[in-house]
Design a binder for these strands. Structure first.
Lengths: 188, 188
DNA sequence: AAAAAATGAGACATCTTTGTCTCATGTTGA
DNA sequence: TCAACATGAGACAAAGATGTCTCATTTTTT
């Protein structure tokens, strides 16, 4: 193996995938559980990832990369920042499975992850501010709130899909409507 | 102690309060941490709560009761269901500290807690449906989504308050506006 | 004051997870 | 084929959390 290789090795890929599967189902699962799901020995897991923290960090990096790629692809030809945000929302929901279990992990101490996460938030904030200029959002509403609302409504959408209360498309539409025009009905 | 007593004993109250404090800061804290914060011996904690699960369940019951009481008091004189939901949102945010760390606990196996939680959700759903009839929400939007949106926007509000990006009042207003009319601005 | 109950401190065994190491086996590339 | 490398299986020690128990002390009640 002398050529530059950005891909994961075969075992690493299996372990990462198993990590998503197992930790999604149970965030406190053991490394033995992950190794078993991956079909590799526990020692092999340790050879590639020094410990639980390392594995979690690797999962986080992969998940964020996937998200980045999906958003990049989906918004490539978006006619506006506002539309780009809507498209992002749509694309994120099916991928949210792979992110949600990471939310409650203490990854703050891994600089690499923290930096990538911060950058993701910054990019969202930038898109929101650009959308504000388009009239897509009220400039009087703090960007921090809009970003937070996007994040949590994405989570809400993922939840209702998971519970079988809506299809991904329906959930995305509901989340976007909530952001854009709220849930108010007509006067009675 | 022969008279009927619905209050917690002194030690129990200290332990419960310590539980909120410690687990809010670190959801994986140990029972020893809780006992220390409470200023009681670890054995005493075990005398009152058989184990971690028992303690968590007790915390959940207390938190839900607090929430119930606060909502009951706040919405007592509400002129409508819609307004009652808005007032609830306001009241919940400062209390959210005491709930959030419980969200990721596997409490599903404690029937008592599960029942109380289900009832809370049902009550919210009922209020939402009543608000729909008032025109407060669009009847075409699924109640399940509205309930989920209320929950997650409450979480969003709590988050921005925690991060110092807004006062509780501001956050509550933003969350309610998002629900009611969205975040759209005028055309440019 | 005397009895009863609750507590603190610590010892102890157990269990789980983690991380390391070794050795035999299998796989890959030259 | 041969050599380098990756793997699987298992043993092992260390660390942390939990739950139980005892005993002396304190607090409360009677």
């Amino acid at each position: 193996m002398r050529h530059l290789c950005l891909m994961l090795k075969k075992s690493e890929a299996k372990i990462i995938e198993a990590g998503f599967t197992v930790f999604s189902a149970n965030p406190t699962a053991t490394l033995a559980d992950v190794a078993k799901e991956a079909g590799v020995g526990r020692a092999t897991l340790h050879r590639h990832y020094a410990g639980r923290e390392d594995l979690m960090a690797a999962l986080a990096m992969v998940a964020m990369q996937e998200l980045d790629d999906a958003i990049e692809a989906a918004t490539k030809d978006a006619p506006s920042y506002t539309e780009a945000l809507r498209l992002s929302l749509e694309v994120i929901i099916p991928l949210a499975d792979r992110q949600m279990f990471l939310a409650n992990e203490p990854l703050d101490h891994v600089p690499e992850v923290l930096e990538a996460y911060t950058q993701q938030l910054d990019e969202t904030a930038e898109a929101v501010e650009a959308a504000k200029e388009e009239g897509g959002f009220d400039a009087a509403v703090p960007t921090a709130w809009i970003v937070q609302a996007i994040e949590t409504l994405t989570y809400a959408a993922w939840t209702v899909v998971r519970d079988g209360d809506a299809t991904p498309e329906e959930a995305a539409a509901l989340a976007w409507r909530t952001l854009q025009s709220g849930l108010t009905g007509g006067e009675k």
